[in-house]
Write a protein that binds this DNA or RNA. Structure first.
Length: 741
DNA sequence: CTGGGGTCCT
DNA sequence: AGGACCC
């Protein structure tokens, strides 16, 4: 009773090769031919292929890795900033072909290219195929006819061509090589994408699905079957994929609900009608820090403060306003491998971000810190001993339409790094927001106007740093703030610290009394060229905008910061305008019909299977979209498609190493002229806590202390109004979190 | 010797 | 709030 199989779609799964390591190699090309590992704490999360060939696989302990290969170069990958940014660029390139792109982690993308296939079918040779074919022993075996007869053969051949072009564009734009799998559903595309490993692609024809699935062995190797479900299956005596295929639904029913059982069974046969779900902007933005042991409240505060500061930067790049703050801890628990995380969340008063997310004042930060600590105390009784191994904080539940001012302002001020991706791609046609309309105008404007926009932006940001090309640690020139803090003598006033010793309960009163200052503080920051307005250039940026060999993704003469801030469609239009032979950026219209389903009663449920392999569901936060096109060949496509007749020359997989690319190595977070070592913790501040703080925070603490000193003793009047005055009322905000007990 | 993130569902 | 899954 086999129903006719459904091969209507063509799905491409793209998977960047050893992603973190590749990003580091792009950032520093001299690493390319050396064994390289990227680590997070004690774990090596990935290694490049040089290292792998010398026995250093991923997921090794640093210790083991160094034993196996003492010359291994290790880079710390705990800060995901660069990976996140590169990942966004990759997704943006894929979105250039179709908007139906689903991200999975930072290094994977699914693309449903079914609807753009027509253009490539003409272009492709029915007897040749790009890349490898699953099951073939050699690269260019002759293709069989069409055993299926539904047309999937030529569709997949065209899909392989699309995959090739996507991969070429990704290399051109980012320098990152990817593997790709091409198949008629997500499960198969993903399973097959890694079959030939670095920088290759594999297409799976439906008549070999059984061979692929049977080669899988353990059920665990099916994406969507995680450790928990795998164990449950083991208990049922189901070990291999073949076991799963042969198991009765009744048996599965003893442990899983109806839908999960059927899904498991389908998966084991390679059947999967889950749609590619367009990834929107992130639902949560969070940061974690893991460690062996934290048992002091001061270190907890310090770590949360550090996390919060970093998180606010991410929030600023995102531009949306969150309505919920979540705080999470992991308590040491001898043997429980996982799951011992606890979290608490609290609504964020809308007034907190009333002046937007671009310039968050110290009062807002202090309030957030108070809330963080309050939530923390709900989970950890600090009057007793405690042992924590992880802290994290995050913002969730973003307000859908950011305020007008906020939406628009984020496009008009230079920012550090912008998440280019996904913004507004879910925009309803009928209600385009004002800022998008205004940028639609930009998109039709020529490049010189874009360039003048860049100049305009340049003029409103005070450039404060240019590193010499020599050392990564060179800091740029300093701004006035830095000079002030440097020229001051760093003596201490204990009185301040005593004052700050108060607890958090009276915070709200203090808060409301100074809230009005935040706007003026923000303005002041802007006028003075605060680092908020400064964009540090990054190596990645250099790469994509200064690629001398290929066509840069960001057209020459356009500020990449500005470019990245634009909605993807607009980016695409600019590119399209710039190049004469662009890929097709046409959004594919979708019907919004979802098929109603009868709810099931639940025995054991699997949220994950639902998520990764769900059919169109009745409800859901995202709009249900019909991803399966009509199979009738005469698709009436109203919009004409610009064929992508780009030159087919293969993009060079290796970039030229002309040695001059790494000149902007300044880490985005430290743009001051002072070295951290020049700062001493004030009296009463635990020096170990102090030194654990980020440099900016240390600086602020010292500044606060200095301001307090000058206002209470000697020169009350002599303070420059524009600087010393601007934050006077905010003192006492941050200090209380770092005082010594 | 446990990364630093994300998704969605109940 | 937690739990499953993904990378």
């Amino acid at each position: 009773m086999l129903l006719p199989a459904d091969h209507r779609r063509v799905i491409i799964h793209l998977d960047a090769d050893c992603f973190y390591a590749q990003v580091e190699m792009v950032r520093d090309p001299s690493l390319r031919d050396k064994p390289l590992g990227v680590k997070q704490k004690n774990l090596m999360v990935t290694s490049n292929y040089v290292a792998r060939s010398m026995g250093v696989k991923k997921s090794m302990w640093i210790k083991e890795a160094l034993e196996a290969l003492p010359d291994l170069i290790l880079i710390d990958g705990s800060d995901l900033t660069h990976y996140r940014q590169c990942s966004s660029e990759i997704s943006a390139v894929v979105r250039t072909f179709t908007v139906d792109v689903e991200r999975l982690g930072l290094d994977e993308n699914f693309a449903d290219v079914t609807e753009i296939l027509e253009d490539y079918i003409e272009e492709s040779d029915p007897n040749k195929i790009e890349g490898r074919v699953y099951g073939d022993k050699e690269p260019d075996e002759t293709l069989p006819g069409d055993p299926c007869g539904c047309g999937c053969r030529e569709r997949l051949i065209a899909g392989a061509l699309v995959a090739k072009k996507i991969r070429q564009q990704i290399v051109k734009a980012t320098g990152i090589t990817c593997c790709a799998g091409v198949a008629h559903n997500k499960l198969l595309a993903k399973l097959v994408s890694g079959y030939y490993k670095p920088n290759q692609q594999t297409v799976l024809f439906p008549w070999l699905v059984h061979q692929l699935m049977n080669s899988l062995n353990l059920t665990r190797s099916i994406p969507g079957i995680g450790s928990t479900m795998y164990k449950t299956l083991e208990e049922l005596g189901i070990h291999t994929v073949k076991d799963l295929q042969n198991s009765s639904l009744a048996l599965l029913h003893s442990k899983f609900d109806d839908e999960t059982s059927k899904r498991l069974r389908d998966l084991s046969f390679g059947i999967d009608d889950a749609p590619v779900r367009r990834s929107g902007r992130p639902q949560t933005i969070g940061l974690e820090d893991a460690f062996r042991k934290v048992n002091s409240i001061d270190v907890v505060q310090s770590k949360y403060l550090t996390l919060l500061e970093r998180l606010l930067k991410l929030l600023k790049e995102d531009g949306r306003i969150p309505s919920t703050l979540r705080v999470c801890v992991r308590k040491f628990d001898t043997k429980k491998k996982f799951g011992n995380r606890e979290s608490r969340q609290t609504p964020i008063l809308p007034s907190l971000f009333a002046s937007g997310v671009q310039n968050v004042g110290e009062n807002t930060r202090a309030t957030l810190m108070n809330q963080v600590m309050e939530l923390f105390h709900k989970m950890v009784d600090t009057s007793k001993e405690f042992h924590l191994t992880l802290l994290s904080i995050g913002f969730t539940k973003f307000i859908e339409r950011a305020s007008h001012e906020n939406s628009i302002s984020r496009f008009f001020f230079k920012r550090k790094r912008s998440e280019t991706e996904e913004q507004d791609i879910n925009e309803e046609k009928g209600e385009k927001s004002a800022h998008l309309k205004s940028f639609s105008t930009f998109s039709s404007v020529n490049n010189s106007k874009i360039h003048s926009l860049e100049l305009y932006l340049e003029s409103c940001s005070e450039s404060d740093s240019y590193s010499s090309e020599g050392g990564r640690n060179n800091q740029g020139s300093m701004n006035i703030k830095d000079m002030l803090s440097k020229s001051h003598n760093h003596s201490i006033e204990r009185k301040i610290l005593k004052t700050l010793k108060g607890n958090s309960s009276n915070n709200m009163h203090k808060q409301t009394s100074v809230t009005n200052n935040e706007a003026s503080v923000s303005n002041c920051d802007q006028n003075n060229g605060d680092s908020n307005c400064h964009a540090a250039s990054s190596p990645l940026e250099d790469l994509s905008s200064a690629d001398k060999d290929g066509i840069a993704r960001v057209p020459h003469g356009i500020d990449e910061e500005v470019f990245q801030a634009l909605p993807p469609e607009i980016q695409d239009e600019i590119i399209l305008d710039y190049k004469s032979k662009p890929p097709d950026p046409k959004p594919v219209p979708k019907s919004t019909t979802g098929s109603p389903k009868i709810p099931f009663k639940v025995k054991t449920t699997s949220a994950t299977l639902d998520k990764y392999f769900k059919r169109d569901s009745v409800r859901g936060p995202r709009e249900a979209r019909e991803t399966v096109p009509k199979i009738s060949s005469t698709e009436t496509n109203a919009e004409s498609v610009i064929s992508h007749h780009s030159s087919n020359e293969a993009a060079p997989p290796e970039r030229k190493e002309d040695g001059g690319e790494d000149k902007s190595a300044a880490s985005g977070s430290s743009s001051s002229g002072l070295s951290p070592s020049t700062l001493q913790p004030p009296d009463g501040v635990d020096s170990s806590v102090f030194s654990a703080l980020p440099w900016e925070i240390q600086k602020e603490i010292v500044e606060e202390q200095r301001r307090s000193l000058s206002s209470s003793s000697a020169s009350r009047v002599s303070n420059s109004p524009s600087y010393s005055g601007r934050r006077r009322e905010a003192s006492s905000s941050i200090m209380k979190y770092i005082k010594k007990v």
